[in-house]
Design a binder for these strands. Structure first.
Length: 515
RNA sequence: GGUCCAUUCGUCUAUCGGUUAGGACGCAAGAUUUUCAUUCUUGAAAGAGCAGUUCGAUUCUGCUAUGGACUACCA
């Protein structure tokens, strides 16, 4: 019988969710939905010292903004809870004991200082110290010490850790859906700490395996940084006797810095001027603010599309994918093996595409807050007016906030006129021409663009005026500079009175520049 | 240092032994336009190196080089 697909995204609440983490969550989600399975959100807070307030809420909000739905989790509930590791202490204790009783783990009393000293010592001799079969008998643990002494130490409240006893000289096989078979010799693995008595919590490795097993996770889809510890995890499944239900491994390639070397980090965003977080984040400790995609004006669909293509492709030339398409098309076979450099320019392009394709009325709603930021009362304009204004300029914008630069003149008459355009288009006598234009405009019955355009153009032609000079002077008075959408679409939206008023203002205020 | 993973235009990538090595972003040029854009057309731009397997390798194998990850009582 095929096992039901259950995947999990398991972040630590140690800060804002990184964009690479978002992609991992996305791939988990896509796979779960495609297979009709479940998506679990598990909070891995086994490191009490790194807990950051607000981080968990941030994770939830970010996933929600992006449309990555969660079926089971702290908020959603579910049959396999609790979904926060700090609330699962009793469970972990039980399984640590199981390993201890079976002789597959042991107590260790070495202090962090002693271990540091060992490492320093080894380093001085250009060696590395590893806590494993070759060294553990020389350390302070229940394998090297008499049972009574161990018992006395524990009963006396001595701090200890439990380490996994890894057998030497074993070949461990990790079967990865993206990378194929990865083999490693157990000699390079160290006796990992599974549990620390100091805070009565397991480490990632133990908690992860126990939870994945108990939550019946079928596929572990995570970042490539976990590949080196995957053999350890395989060995843990073995030690527990859970090999037959061990999840399928999938290690995703990393997101790399756009320039230079290394994986994308928090600092790169500030340094290169783009967000590395989905949402803006205010660090409660340092007070620092990190920018987010949402606040930078990105549309969630664009972020999803962009992220999905960073490491996955459909096998052909298609590039535009909505969430539903991704769910249908996604596959690990078409996931890349190599890390992807983060291409921010491409991300901007995706946003442009989604922005330009968005219906005008929806875009208008997103634009209203921007209007307010610039002191424009959106209520003074009809929704239809705003939608039309936005519709005329959206294809020249990457972000919602760019709309303002391109259509501000619809909401505020020009207060100044572009110097270089005056120089080029406003000569001696232009004012006379503009007065004549007013007369032509005033005489119009139908103000629509289709009707007014031929009238004005006909007037220009009949008098053999210079088309470019007249039209640009006209534009200068209405827009304030020589740019923007088709002239008659602007005047149609602005209305006859406003258009003529602006020309008059221009005639009064624009003076030719002496050459 | 050790272990593991990777390697096609500047970037993201297609190709699952036989192609003029394709697409997209970005870049450049041209066209269109009453302006600025958009749009359209075109162009420059790639198989890390060396062996081997093969009639034939970007594709398979090995070595080298380069890049990356990991190497905590962090995840």
């Amino acid at each position: 019988m095929e096992r039901k697909v259950r995947v999990r995204f398991a972040p630590s609440p140690t800060g804002p969710l990184h964009i690479g983490g978002v992609r991992t969550a996305l791939y988990n989600y896509l796979f779960a939905r495609q297979m009709g399975g479940s998506m679990i959100l598990r909070i891995e807070d086994t490191d009490s010292t790194r807990f950051v307030p607000g981080a968990e809420d941030y994770i939830n909000e970010a996933l929600q903004w992006l449309g990555i739905g969660i079926d089971e989790g702290v908020r959603e509930g579910g049959e396999y809870g609790p979904y926060k590791q700090s609330e699962r202490r009793d469970i972990y204790r039980r399984y640590v004991k199981q390993l201890l009783d079976a002789g597959k783990a042991y107590y260790a009393f070495d202090t962090p200082e002693e271990l540091d000293a060992k490492r320093e010592e080894a380093k001085a001799e250009k060696m590395t110290f590893q806590y494993d079969a070759s060294t553990r008998l020389g350390m302070r643990n229940s394998l090297s010490m008499p049972a009574e002494e161990v018992k006395a130490l524990i009963d006396g409240g001595h701090k200890y850790v439990v380490r996994f006893k890894i057998d030497p000289d074993r070949e461990v096989l990790v079967n990865d859906l993206i990378r194929g078979e990865v083999r490693i010799n157990s000699n390079v693995l160290d006796d990992k700490v599974l549990y620390k008595s100091a805070d009565d919590l397991p480490t990632y490795h133990l908690a992860n395996i126990v939870d994945d097993h108990l939550m019946e996770v079928s596929h572990v889809i995570r970042g490539e940084e976990w590949l080196p510890s995957a053999p350890l995890h395989v060995l843990l499944y073995e030690a527990f006797g859970w090999t037959d239900t061990m999840p399928q491994w999938v290690h995703l390639p990393l997101l790399l810095k756009p320039d230079g070397k290394g994986k994308l980090s928090k600092r790169d965003g500030d340094r290169l001027g783009f967000p590395v977080f989905p949402l803006e984040w205010h660090d409660p400790k340092s007070g620092e603010t990190s920018s987010g995609y949402r606040e930078a004006g990105y549309l969630p669909q664009a972020v999803i599309n962009f992220l999905a293509l960073l490491g996955w492709n459909p096998g052909d030339d298609r590039e535009m994918f909505g969430m539903e398409d991704l769910i249908k098309e996604f596959s690990f076979e078409h996931c890349s093996k190599k890390g992807a450099k983060f291409d921010y320019e491409k991300g901007k392009w995706f946003n442009h595409e989604y922005l330009a394709a968005m219906p005008d009325d929806e875009l208008a709603e997103l634009f209203k807050p921007v209007l307010a930021q610039h002191g424009v009362d959106a209520a003074a304009f009809s929704d239809e007016f705003i939608a039309k204004a936005v519709g005329l300029v959206k294809n020249r914008c990457n972000f919602v906030k760019d709309l303002w630069d391109n259509c501000a003149f619809f909401f505020k008459a020009p207060e100044a006129y572009a110097e270089k355009d005056i120089k080029k288009r406003w000569k001696e006598g232009t004012d006379v021409l503009m007065r004549e234009l007013i007369t032509v405009l005033e005489g119009m019955e139908d103000w629509g663009a289709e009707a007014s355009e031929p009238v004005v153009l006909g007037w220009i032609k009949d008098h053999e005026y210079h088309m470019g000079n007249v039209m640009n002077a006209f534009r200068l008075t209405v827009v304030g500079e020589c740019k923007g959408p088709h002239m008659f679409l602007i005047t149609e939206l602005l209305g006859k009175d406003e258009t003529i008023a602006r020309i008059k203002r221009g005639i009064d205020n624009i003076k030719p520049v002496e050459a």
